[in-house]
Design a protein around this nucleic acid. Structure first.
Lengths: 182, 182
DNA sequence: TTTTCCATGTAACTCGTTACATGATTTC
DNA sequence: GAAATCATGTAACGAGTTACATGGAAAA
């Protein structure tokens, strides 16, 4: 649903064609969405069929004939609905890196520490990259701040883990999946 | 990849059949994975075909004939590889709730505040639910702590946003997607 | 005896991605 | 004239989910 919200939100502010949308998402919104080109075209077609947006073919002087999309009244209504839905709900983030953590005690703690240090390096790089994203103002900036907070929390957590690993290296005694009945 | 890691990790500690795996994941690991039943069966078949696990049909006294899975040497190697891969990399979390934030300035700030307050309530509920998850010990506990930290950071951030919204209610001037060329 | 639990599976579908294909236009 | 850019699309695939189907055993 949040992909539709993204496209509607952009088109609401300004008529755009597909290529333009993709470019902007890639550049300015890479932190906040990973929408791919074919997916965007697919969704645009779908929303056009649903009557949320309408397209007009423009600029015959330009070759592949740009399809410029405009929000309809129905599209504006859908945007309002999706926006409220998204803002009011809390959707938990998923951390793919957690799976490794759960089984980290399968390794000697020195090796776990070494691997997590690698992870820390990658994390720092991501943090620095984020600080170079240009400010687009408005609540778009909220997203950047939001992510920055989480990255900071992540770094904190990693450091505390690493410190604990070095303070008292555990001897790798893994937990066991204790189901109620053996 | 992290789904395979999960199944391998569990089977490494103890032979189990599909139903058992699903049950455990649902109960103890709901915070850390959303692996569904049919997906688990599918992956088990795939990993059996790849030679990572082997099944033995057990307990003829019980009806649907349990398929008990055991890790092979190749499976152990795969587990080691996947674990190291996962621990050493940093995979960014995705926040589906961010999309609404980006367009929050489409609403009057009082309404945005009201909606975010709803979100806050849901978040608090999630936090309390997490504190009731039983302790399974080992680094499985790391996952719980990790998520708890992020939930706390999220709550912090939400509160700071809400405070800011109430301090100086903005007048809804949305940002615009400024591509380099108009 | 009827319901619930155990334990399996499969078919159809959605969503999203990768990779490929086209063709004109500006730039070197 | 070759290469990069603009702008579109499509085909094929993969992963994952929903919903459905089966049947015996234990419990009510």
């Amino acid at each position: 649903m949040h992909r539709e919200l993204l496209l509607l939100g952009l088109l609401r502010q300004q008529d755009m064609h597909g290529y333009q949308l993709n470019e902007f998402i890639d550049q300015a919104l890479s932190a906040c969405s990973d929408l791919k080109r074919p997916t965007a075209y697919f969704l645009l077609d779908k929303m056009a069929a649903a009557g949320w947006i309408k397209e007009k073919r423009a600029d015959t002087s330009k070759r592949p004939v740009r399809r410029v999309f405009t929000l309809t009244a129905a599209g504006e209504a859908a945007f309002q609905r999706l926006l409220r839905e998204n803002l009011s709900a809390w959707l938990p983030a998923t951390f793919p890196g957690d799976m490794g953590l759960a089984f980290a005690d399968a390794l000697p703690s020195t090796e776990a520490a070494a691997l997590l240090t690698e992870r820390r390096t990658a994390l720092r790089a991501a943090l620095e990259a984020m600080q170079k994203v240009p400010d687009h103002g408005g609540t778009l900036q909220w997203v950047i701040e939001h992510q920055a907070r989480h990255l900071a929390a992540e770094l904190d957590w990693l450091d505390s883990r690493l410190a604990a690993l070095q303070a008292h290296p555990t001897t790798g005694k893994p937990w066991r999946p204790s189901t109620s009945k053996a």
